[in-house]
């Protein structure tokens, strides 16, 4: 017989909760679905050029590409990060309320804070695992197909950036799910938020150019260029999304070219002729990446704090 006065260490209870969460994720097939989607996307990314070369008339010889992996990580942004993030957390809390499993869980000798913390940690680990799998697959496949790759030492930083960037959207879905206790509302609300930001961001960019307001918005953020604003219409230079979705790219470039300058340009549309382009702001990759990192972390922390507060205050009226 077990002793009645067992005192569970917080760590033991936390590990039990993590185990509970992982079984929930894995057995619910949610994570398997995410991994399959990721696998499919990465496979398309890897196979597109060789297939295009093979079917071209005349068939082309596949060229070595030492930046395939680096570029592949930078290409993972926008809706992809959103979908993976939202799929990971949309029913993390609300699913328990919907199914009624929250009742036995919250009547066990674990605090609501510990339950919530386990859910967050499990979500972060799941995202980290998903992006490690994805980037690992791209790295191995890219090396085999396109030859030796440059800057592979930056791959872990890319995985970290993808995870944090995706966690911003995961936090949005988690917060909406905790407030509404409804997974569908959490998913649709997050999508509405995403679309709203996309439209809002596009309008701001169209009216004001890469307004500094967009430095602090989640998503694609402001677009920076390595070219001078004055000659932007003539092309040249590289452009980068510097929002939370572009964190992986920014973190890798922070290490690679910390001092390189990004210019953020404004546009003034005229009734006739080309719009005039003006320089709104310029900053180094190091500063942009640092700002991007803390903006992402502030969003994650703020949203999780709100979600935690709602979770702690929640009551089970129906069961």
């Amino acid at each position: 017989m077990p002793t009645k006065k067992n005192r569970a260490g917080t760590l033991a209870a936390f590990i039990a909760l993590l185990y509970y969460e992982f079984l929930w994720n894995i057995r619910k097939k949610k994570i398997i679905a995410i991994f399959i989607i990721i696998f499919a996307i990465a496979t398309v990314q890897l196979a597109f050029t060789p297939i295009a070369d093979a079917v071209a008339n005349p068939p082309q010889t596949l060229q070595a590409n030492s930046t395939f992996v680096f570029g592949g990580i930078e290409a993972l942004t926008g809706i992809f990060l959103f979908l993976v993030g939202v799929a990971t957390t949309m029913n993390t809390v609300s699913g328990e309320f919907e199914s009624g499993t929250i009742v036995p869980l919250l009547t066990k000798p674990v605090s609501k804070t510990l339950v919530f913390a386990a859910k967050i940690v499990a979500s972060v680990i799941t995202l980290l695992a998903a992006y490690s799998f994805l980037v690992g697959y791209i790295t191995i496949g890219g090396t085999l197909i396109y030859g030796p790759q440059d800057n592979l030492n930056l791959v872990p930083l890319g995985i970290l950036g993808l995870t944090i960037g995706s966690m911003v959207w995961a936090s949005v879905a988690l917060t909406l799910g905790t407030l509404s206790k409804n997974s569908v509302l959490a998913a649709l609300g997050s999508f509405g938020f995403y679309i709203g930001l996309l439209i809002g961001g596009t309008l701001i960019a169209a009216q004001l150019g890469a307004s500094t307001v967009l430095f602090y918005a989640p998503g694609m953020g402001a677009t920076g260029t390595t070219a001078a604003c004055a000659g932007l219409e003539r092309g040249g230079g590289q452009t980068f999304s510097t929002g939370t979705d572009g964190l992986a790219s920014m973190l890798m470039r922070w290490v690679l070219n910390p001092g390189q300058v990004l210019n953020f340009c404004g546009f003034q549309f005229r009734a006739s002729g080309n719009p005039t382009t003006t320089l709104l702001a310029s900053d180094t990759f190091a500063n942009v990446a640092f700002r991007d990192l803390w903006v992402s972390l502030v969003y994650v922390a703020g949203l999780l704090l709100l979600s935690w507060f709602a979770f702690r205050r929640s009551q089970i009226v129906e069961s």
Partner: peptide, 14 residues
């Protein structure tokens, strides 16, 4: 088993 862990029960007890 999971609920037992939450109560702090050892593996042997569970």
């Amino acid at each position: 088993d999971i609920y037992g862990r939450m109560y702090g029960m050892s593996k042997t007890e569970r």
